[in-house]
Amino acid sequence: MASDATLRDYLAAKAMNGILSNSGMIDSVTNQTLEWVAKSAYQAADAMLKARG
């Protein structure tokens, strides 16, 4: 993890990696879908942090 990255950033990056591992996402990537991926990754990270307590 980069020294300036937060745990939230790290978790979002892991979630984004999972989302982008779907070949259907790669075949239809646009700026709009990338924005959706980034937003969704941070939503997933926030949920993980909330579940962590």
Rank of each mutant, 00 (worst) to 15 (best):
M1R: 05
M1G: 08
M1D: 04
A2E: 13
A2V: 11
S3M: 12
S3L: 13
S3Y: 11
D4R: 11
D4I: 13
D4T: 14
A5F: 03
A5V: 00
A5C: 07
A5H: 00
T6A: 08
T6Q: 07
L7G: 05
L7C: 03
L7P: 04
R8F: 01
D9V: 06
D9Q: 11
D9R: 02
D9E: 14
Y10K: 08
L11F: 03
L11T: 05
A12S: 05
K14V: 05
K14L: 03
K14Q: 07
K14G: 02
K14S: 07
A15P: 01
A15C: 05
A15K: 00
M16E: 01
N17C: 08
G18A: 13
G18F: 09
G18C: 09
I19S: 05
I19R: 03
L20W: 01
L20Q: 01
L20G: 03
L20E: 06
S21E: 03
S21L: 01
S21T: 05
S21D: 00
S21V: 03
N22T: 01
N22L: 07
G24E: 10
G24V: 02
G24Y: 03
M25D: 09
I26D: 06
D27R: 06
D27Y: 06
D27L: 07
D27H: 06
D27T: 09
S28H: 14
V29F: 09
V29M: 15
V29L: 15
T30A: 01
T30K: 03
T30S: 11
T30V: 06
T30Y: 01
T30G: 02
N31L: 14
N31V: 13
N31P: 07
N31E: 14
Q32R: 14
Q32C: 10
Q32T: 14
T33W: 03
L34S: 08
L34I: 09
L34A: 12
E35W: 10
E35Y: 11
W36H: 11
V37G: 02
V37P: 00
V37T: 09
V37H: 04
V37F: 07
V37A: 10
A38S: 12
A38M: 12
K39M: 07
K39S: 10
S40T: 15
S40F: 07
S40M: 10
S40Y: 07
S40G: 09
S40A: 15
Y42K: 07
Y42I: 12
Q43D: 15
Q43W: 11
A44G: 07
A44D: 08
A45N: 04
A45D: 00
D46E: 04
D46A: 00
D46R: 01
D46T: 00
A47F: 08
A47C: 06
A47R: 12
M48V: 11
M48F: 11
M48K: 13
L49F: 01
K50E: 15
K50N: 09
A51R: 15
A51Y: 12
A51Q: 15
A51V: 12
R52V: 05
G53D: 15
G53S: 15
